[in-house]
Simulated assay, not measured.
Amino acid sequence: MTKAIRIHAVGGPEVMSYEDVEVGAPGPGQARVRHTAIGVNFIDVYFRTGAYPAPLPFTPGNEGAGVVEAVGEGVSDVAPGDRVAYAAGLGAYAEVRLIDADRLVKIPEGVSDEQAAGMMLKGMTAQYLLRRTYRVKAGDTVLVHAAAGGVGLILVQWAKHLGATVIGTVGSPEKGELARSKGCDHVIEYGKEDFAARVGEITNGAKCQVVYDGVGKATFPGSLDCLAPLGMFASYGSASGKVEAFDIGLLAQKGSLFATRPTLFTYVAKRDDLVATANDLFEVVRSGAVEIPINARAKLADIGDVHRALEGRKTTGVTVLTP
């Protein structure tokens, strides 16, 4: 027997129970991974509350790192003893799990298990946003909402590394200092300022080529007012609630804008894309261009407190669980 967090009914943090579970041998195409570190993401809250439905009961969590214990028939990408990491389907909040082996990537030397567990979902999200959804180049001006959050801090550093001018929104002076320390050129505290008006001032009316928005309802449609003509609105999350339906003609009125609601799992659905995305991320971390700020650590059994902090906007950067 091994331990895992199980959810039998959706709801608040109290619905997560720390239980004994049985993990069998890996089937064809699967690997059994013993976690050394587990990542925490706001998407975990969506699953726990039922905003993203999952068959009950289930083990939450989409991100982790560990060691391969065994592989099933037909597996050639990884082998027992390999250090691996992933951002994949539910089941990460556990000591041991089964997972499709083609979702695993090997962790290179120079990247710790904690870093890998804390950056696979957030870091690969930043990678596709910056390199594929809108390919940031030197001279661009980008707006990053929730710039002190897990994805936000990676976006800020990486965009700066690519030569962009980075504007970030934050919820407090402390978060503003953190974002600024990671390369944010301009910080806007959205509780105190009209962020769209401030972006116009900062850019002398030129505005931004892209807005990366993981906040959702609270920052829409203001995000569109931050874009230059033909700019890209990339809505990759909804921490404040979903963006409500809007007239697509709004995009024409505000400058023939582009809008997309991308997900990581679409961008890395193919094995080759997954490996290329992960390797690009590993490279910028190993080079020191992007740091993975692990600002909180907790035991898996204490996950309820972790979720309360996450929902209370009391976290910054990356939170990592240990089994």
Rank of each mutant, 00 (worst) to 15 (best):
E291I: 09
C226W: 02
G27Y: 03
P53S: 05
A206S: 09
S76A: 14
V45Q: 06
I107R: 02
G222M: 01
Q157A: 10
N62M: 15
D225Q: 14
M120Y: 03
T260N: 06
K299D: 15
E95K: 11
G149K: 05
L257I: 10
Y212R: 02
Y52D: 01
V268R: 08
A197R: 14
L300K: 13
L90N: 11
N62A: 12
A79W: 00
I38D: 02
V144T: 08
G231D: 02
I292P: 02
P323Y: 15
Q127S: 11
N204H: 13
S240Y: 05
V156W: 07
P221K: 00
P28Q: 08
S256Q: 02
G237F: 01
G149A: 04
V111K: 06
D302F: 04
G150F: 04
G183K: 05
V84Q: 12
G89A: 15
V187W: 12
R313T: 00
A51N: 01
I292D: 00
H186S: 12
P80L: 03
A301P: 00
Q253R: 15
I294A: 09
V318T: 15
V23P: 08
G50V: 10
F265A: 13
A298E: 07
I43Y: 02
A196S: 14
A94M: 11
M16P: 01
V105S: 06
R6H: 13
G200M: 06
L274E: 11
S240I: 09
L264G: 10
I202E: 09
K242C: 00
I7S: 09
V10P: 05
V68G: 06
G72N: 12
F195T: 01
R286N: 07
A298D: 05
Y93G: 08
N62G: 13
Y134M: 10
V23R: 09
I294N: 09
A126H: 06
V320D: 10
Q30C: 05
G222D: 00
I167C: 09
K207R: 15
A197Y: 04
Y128V: 07
A138W: 04
G216C: 06
